[in-house]
């Protein structure tokens, strides 16, 4: 059974912070059947092998701890805040 039921999808949607409507849950659940049935092509037995997770051959991405730099656009980053309180980003409270 490749379909993801609505109950599971609701749980998943909470994990990824998507407030889905009942209609959306239903639709995505139906989609999941079609899509995951298609995806099940990959359900084979693979010979255990060293998985290379990266396409790049680069290793040890290290950077010297040099002099600190000031990013000149820091102000423009703060200006992007949808809600702001003086020099702070303003978000809902949690206490």
């Amino acid at each position: 059974m490749n379909k993801i039921d609505e109950k599971t999808l609701k749980r998943v949607s909470e994990v990824c912070r998507l407030k889905l409507s009942q209609g959306e849950l239903k639709e995505f659940s139906l989609d999941s059947e079609k899509l995951f049935t298609f995806f099940s092509k990959i359900n084979q037995d693979y010979a255990p092998k060293d998985l290379s997770l990266y396409l790049t051959l680069n290793r040890n991405p290290l950077r010297k701890d040099g002099t600190a730099k000031t990013f000149e656009g820091a102000k423009s980053i703060l200006d992007l805040a949808p809600k702001r309180s003086a020099d702070y980003f303003k978000v809902p409270k949690n206490l």
Partner: peptide, 17 residues
């Protein structure tokens, strides 16, 4: 929810799953 389109939501949902 209010600003992301359907295909984006679909992919986030299944990706999280």
């Amino acid at each position: 929810e209010q600003s992301l389109g359907k295909e984006v939501k679909r992919r986030i949902l299944f990706g999280t799953f």
